[in-house]
Amino acid sequence: MKLHRLVSATPVLATCALLVGLFAFGAISYPNFASAAVVRNLLVDNAFLVVAAVGMTFVIISGGIDLSVGAAMAFSATLAAALIEAGGVHPLAAAAVVLAAGLAFGLVQGVLIAVLDVPPFMVTLAGMFLARGAAFAVHPQSRGITHPFVATTLNETLAMHLPLGARGVTIPPTVVVMLLVLIGAWVLLRHARFGRAVYAVGDDACAARLMGLAVRRVKVGVYTLCGLTSAVAGLLFALYQQSGDPASCKGMELDVIAAVIIGGTLLRGGAGSVIGTFAGVMILGLIQTIISFQGDLSSWWTRIVAGGLVLVFLLLHQGIGVVARRVGRTADRQG
């Protein structure tokens, strides 16, 4: 039993080991790498990615996939910018509208997938087209956000100053939101009925139904949640960029899926964790940081390394699957 548990925890352990190893590599190779500023930038530059990846984690654990995340983020950011700047809506009201839109978008996708049995990748592929087109329909170009509430209150007054390092570090509210989402998602996944049902559905939807779980409702919930986190991620991205750009976040869904896989979530569903996803995003961010510290490598190496890492982790999961089955069989024979 203990061996079984160790085998199933291997992906997350490997992710954490890789994260620590990468950071150690950077700290040894480059001066000034192991500083509070680098860690701060890592969190600030990837806050929106973490939030989007959290929603994707739920979807992938349930055995599905959502390709519409990047486009939904761009739509949310554009809608927020257009409402605030062109519509004269207060940023908080605009955020509420955007969150409601994201929720509705996810809900419709979930209903199409779970109730009408259309394959998830087809629905979300179409959703990606739709959200991207809608983003351009809302506002055709990038639009800067200059509303005083966003520029001053959110980015200056609410930012936290921590006395770390030589000059101290400033943590913007986006990082706080990210941490809140992470904690909320962890509680929901580990300690709520819904989270346990997500694991059960991803492991074996048939068995879950026979156990009396509302499989369809769980699936709809998962995609709705992903639509909501995409909207939150889009808002964070708009805050980070101080603008809403309908052409932004292209290919973001791939980064998000890559982070979730590197984070140890199994693509066939049924296993994974929010903490692993967070580590996965941080690994992608660290690779980018190391490449920029190195200086003479082009930034395209980021994508190549990311692709390679995804492959390595997929193979690792596959190998673990084989080992786990063997261990399970041995345990059955002994027990």
Partner: peptide, 10 residues
């Protein structure tokens, strides 16, 4: 997807 991500970099 792996090749889709890495291929454009290549």
């Amino acid at each position: 997807l792996v090749l889709m991500v890495a291929g454009r970099g290549v």
